[in-house]
């Protein structure tokens, strides 16, 4: 006769604590094991990304002409006070950046999704259309700027040609890049042309992960096309939508080349954006402190928008 004595079961709280310790230990061991593999990329990231960012923030508290050997004078928050209260262009640039981000989140994202949905169906010449819409995305922005600048040319641009074609002289009189109230949106049209195809490709990739069984099951349950899209396709596209939204925000906040190439920020700085104004202050006016203060503001805005959005979407993913 043998008696088996089972060890007393540990209390539930202790159990969780032990499990957490095990996980923590395993994570620690995993991190240490991964460190040699991470180190090169981490070092490059620290040197080429974090380092310049820290240096940029540091320089925003100094007055400096940007020349090697020229003295850097610590001025505290003076550069920030100047950009917020005295700089005649900063608020225009900030306003334009905000407008650009909002428009970018609406128009090219929606257009990219619509194109992806359309070109995800069996269609004659589907691949040719996909390539056609994607091509602007691989062109250099400065080349796109040059092309659109010629299209908007007030003497022999598209407006002039259309005016002659349709006998509508008012078309020739539109100053696409010369009208302060229109210029930013004229440049934005070129941006949409450039970026919509890239969004389309990302959404197309996402659409491949939508299970056809789910779509068919929804249809069998009597769902109409909108209901299928709203309740099946769109939730399945959430991961790729996060990527598209984050990339769009980042691309639109740092927009630079198109504006330099098409208006240079003019007329009268009416198409300035923060990235270009930061560059102009640093390299054009030799006000490195001001330029870096604007860059720091841009960095803070980016973090304020992007980080909470990514955290929120990560939580949504976890819950689902």
């Amino acid at each position: 006769m043998s008696t088996t004595i089972a060890p007393p079961a540990p209390p539930a709280g202790r159990k969780r604590s032990v499990a957490r310790k095990r996980v923590a230990k395993a994570s620690h061991v995993g991190f240490v094991a991964a460190l040699p593999f991470l180190a090169p990329a981490l070092a490059a990231y620290l040197v080429f990304v974090i380092g310049p960012m820290v240096e940029s923030v540091r320089l925003s508290f100094f007055e400096w002409s940007g020349f090697q050997g020229a003295p850097q004078e610590f001025v505290g928050l003076k550069n920030y006070v100047r950009i917020f209260t005295q700089d005649p262009v900063f608020w225009t640039a900030l306003g334009n950046t905000v407008i650009w981000v909002i428009l970018s989140l609406v128009i090219p994202v929606a257009l990219g999704l619509v194109l992806a949905l359309a070109l995800n169906r069996p269609l004659f010449g589907r691949n040719a259309f996909r390539s056609l819409f994607y091509i602007p995305g691989v062109l250099a922005p400065i080349a796109i700027a040059n092309m659109w600048r010629w299209m908007y040319n007030p003497n022999f641009g598209v407006g002039v040609t259309l005016a002659e074609m349709f006998n509508a002289p008012w078309l020739a009189e539109i100053q696409w890049l010369g009208d302060r109230n229109l210029a930013l949106y004229s440049i934005f049209a070129a941006f949409v042309w450039q970026i919509a195809g890239t969004n389309m490709v990302l959404f197309l990739a996402g659409l491949q992960s939508v299970a056809t069984e789910h779509v068919e099951a929804a249809k069998l349950d009597g769902a109409n096309a909108w209901q299928v899209f709203r309740n099946v396709t769109l939730p399945a596209l959430r991961p790729v939508t996060v990527v598209v939204v984050v990339l769009t925000i980042i691309n639109s906040i740092k927009v630079f080349d198109l504006i330099v190439g098409m208006t240079g920020g003019g007329p009268a700085q009416s198409t300035q954006v923060l990235a270009l104004w930061s560059f102009t202050q640093s390299f054009g006016n030799h006000e490195y402190g001001m330029g870096n203060a604007i860059a720091t503001v841009l960095l803070v805005i980016t973090l304020i928008i992007v980080v909470p959005y990514m955290v929120w979407t990560a939580r949504q993913e976890k819950h689902s």
Binding site: A268, N285, H286
Partner: peptide, 19 residues
């Protein structure tokens, strides 16, 4: 100076565009 020139041009263009 460079910064003054940038502002001179801004004012010039504001007048040029009637703003």
């Amino acid at each position: 100076s460079l910064a003054e020139t940038t502002e001179y041009w801004r004012v010039q263009n504001l007048v040029a565009t009637g703003e």
